[in-house]
């Protein structure tokens, strides 16, 4: 890297999306969110605020939830991204998607793909024992998944229809009874 290329503003690279390797070519300014929606046609992931405040763009990268709007596509060269389309499609829904339907956990539905991807990432975080600000015992290996934990951990996903109680119920249905 002694003489980095300084005159190139586009890049071509491989990225795996929902299990499928994709060759893409982008303006370097392209966010992961815009790559997914505008180039790969995966419009399930939503652009809400585009500033990391609302969580509508949440996807999983290597199993971890992130805001795809605050990440450049090029930063994810060679990585594996899961969007709502990779979670489940009509006819083959994930249990959490079914729970959202059963619990009426949305009205307009715009935040829903982000809510579901976020919740899936959140459950993995709890399983790994990663604490939140409401976790009482930081030394504990197992974190009880209380309703308070779910609410706190989902605070990065805004629902302007305010379906929060139903979202909590849907997540609870999949995660098991309150601890």
């Amino acid at each position: 890297m002694d003489t980095p290329v300084r005159d190139v503003t586009r890049a071509a690279f491989e990225i795996t999306v929902n299990g499928e390797a994709q060759q893409v070519e982008v303006d370097l300014r392209t966010t992961l969110l815009d790559l997914l929606r505008e180039q790969l046609g995966l419009t399930g992931t939503k652009k809400g605020c585009d500033h990391g405040q609302c969580g509508a763009c949440t996807v999983l990268v290597g199993g971890r939830r992130i805001n795809s709007c605050l990440s450049l596509a090029i930063m994810h060269e060679g990585e594996a991204v899961t969007t709502i389309e990779g979670v489940g499609l009509p006819g083959n829904l994930h249990a959490l998607q079914t729970a959202f339907l059963d619990r009426d956990a949305f009205q307009c539905g715009y935040c829903t793909p982000g809510q579901i991807c976020s919740a899936l990432g959140m459950l993995l975080e709890v399983r790994r024992g990663e604490p939140s600000q409401v976790t009482e015992d930081l030394a504990a290996e197992t974190i009880p998944l209380t309703d308070e934990e779910i609410r706190e951990r989902m605070s990065g996903n805004i629902c302007r229809c305010s379906a929060y109680p139903q979202i909590l119920e849907a997540i609870r249905d999949v995660a098991g009874a309150a601890a």
Partner: peptide, 16 residues
């Protein structure tokens, strides 16, 4: 340090 970190941002942002 854990308490301060998890008091900041959202989980998605802290993951990144």
């Amino acid at each position: 340090l854990t308490h301060a970190l998890v008091a900041g941002a959202s989980a998605q942002l802290r993951n990144k």
